[in-house]
Amino acid sequence: MKTILAYGDSLTWGHAPAGGGVRHPFADRWPSVLEAGLVGQARVIPEGLNGRTTASDDFTAASDRNGVRLLPTLLDTHQPLDLVVIMLGSNDIKTFIVGSAFAAANGMKRLAEITRTFPYLNGLAPKVIFVAPPLTVPSPRNVAPASVSPRTTDDQLFDHYYATAAREVGAGYFNAASVAVASPIDGVHLDAANTRAIGMGLIPAVKQALGLQ
């Protein structure tokens, strides 16, 4: 059986749009849906953290949210791994973090580099899939000075920059915006149907990456 690490932020954690720490049921989170769709051929380890970035610090948070700094520990914790699916970037485009999809894409490239060069006990590095996050949408909460704001329009550039970055590093690629859209409740997070859609949408890309039928 293959082992997959799902590395992400609140969209992977299962944050419901209603807020208040409400989390979607386990079965509705995209890593769970992906695992179910692989019908016993792989297990998917969910590693989602609210507010996680690709490679930037957020010193307003109670915990370390820098994806580059945290990834090596998780690779060590969960090895051996066959595949790492990375869906990050939504927090990078907060203007007080980076505010740039281009910067987020460079952070993704660094995450791929870390994944491939980590000193695994079996000497085998997992494959990597980049996932561009869904687009944000207008919402009464998604305006300054709400905690989810301000965000730039750079989320519309995720597909271009992430697809390019994936080609440059030889990673797989999936655009979550092709199957999912954020909820207008908060403009950022997903309802249960849309987070499930990401899990379903990833099945072909994961099967291709791992050579599964």
Score class of each variant (00 low, 15 high):
2 K>P: 00
3 T>K: 01
4 I>D: 11
7 Y>A: 05
8 G>A: 08
9 D>M: 08
11 L>K: 11
11 L>N: 10
12 T>M: 10
14 G>K: 01
16 A>S: 14
17 P>I: 09
17 P>Q: 03
17 P>F: 03
18 A>D: 03
25 P>I: 09
26 F>T: 05
27 A>Y: 15
28 D>M: 11
28 D>H: 06
29 R>Y: 11
32 S>D: 00
34 L>H: 09
35 E>W: 02
37 G>K: 09
38 L>Y: 10
40 G>A: 01
40 G>K: 10
44 V>P: 07
44 V>E: 04
48 G>R: 11
49 L>V: 07
51 G>H: 08
53 T>Y: 10
53 T>E: 10
53 T>M: 02
57 D>C: 13
58 D>M: 13
59 F>T: 15
59 F>N: 15
60 T>M: 06
60 T>D: 05
62 A>C: 13
63 S>Q: 13
63 S>C: 14
65 R>S: 00
68 V>K: 13
69 R>F: 15
72 P>C: 15
72 P>S: 15
77 T>G: 14
78 H>Q: 06
81 L>M: 00
81 L>R: 08
82 D>F: 05
84 V>E: 09
84 V>Y: 01
84 V>R: 12
85 V>Y: 04
87 M>R: 08
87 M>Q: 06
88 L>M: 10
90 S>V: 14
92 D>F: 07
96 F>S: 13
97 I>L: 07
97 I>G: 04
98 V>M: 11
99 G>N: 04
100 S>Q: 02
100 S>C: 01
101 A>S: 10
102 F>Q: 11
108 M>K: 06
111 L>K: 03
111 L>I: 12
114 I>V: 07
114 I>Y: 01
115 T>H: 02
115 T>P: 01
116 R>M: 05
117 T>D: 13
122 N>D: 03
122 N>L: 10
123 G>E: 01
125 A>I: 12
125 A>H: 06
125 A>Q: 06
127 K>W: 05
128 V>T: 09
130 F>I: 06
134 P>I: 11
134 P>F: 03
136 T>G: 07
138 P>A: 04
138 P>N: 11
138 P>I: 01
145 P>G: 06
145 P>T: 14
145 P>S: 12
149 S>T: 13
150 P>N: 04
151 R>W: 13
159 D>G: 04
161 Y>F: 15
162 Y>C: 06
163 A>G: 12
164 T>E: 13
164 T>P: 03
164 T>G: 12
165 A>W: 00
169 V>A: 08
172 G>M: 02
174 F>T: 05
174 F>W: 09
176 A>F: 14
179 V>K: 03
181 V>L: 15
181 V>A: 14
183 S>C: 12
184 P>M: 05
184 P>Q: 06
185 I>P: 00
185 I>H: 09
186 D>N: 14
187 G>K: 08
190 L>P: 07
191 D>M: 12
192 A>P: 04
195 T>Y: 02
195 T>D: 12
196 R>L: 10
196 R>G: 08
198 I>H: 04
199 G>V: 01
200 M>W: 14
200 M>Q: 15
204 P>N: 14
209 A>P: 04
212 L>T: 03
212 L>S: 02
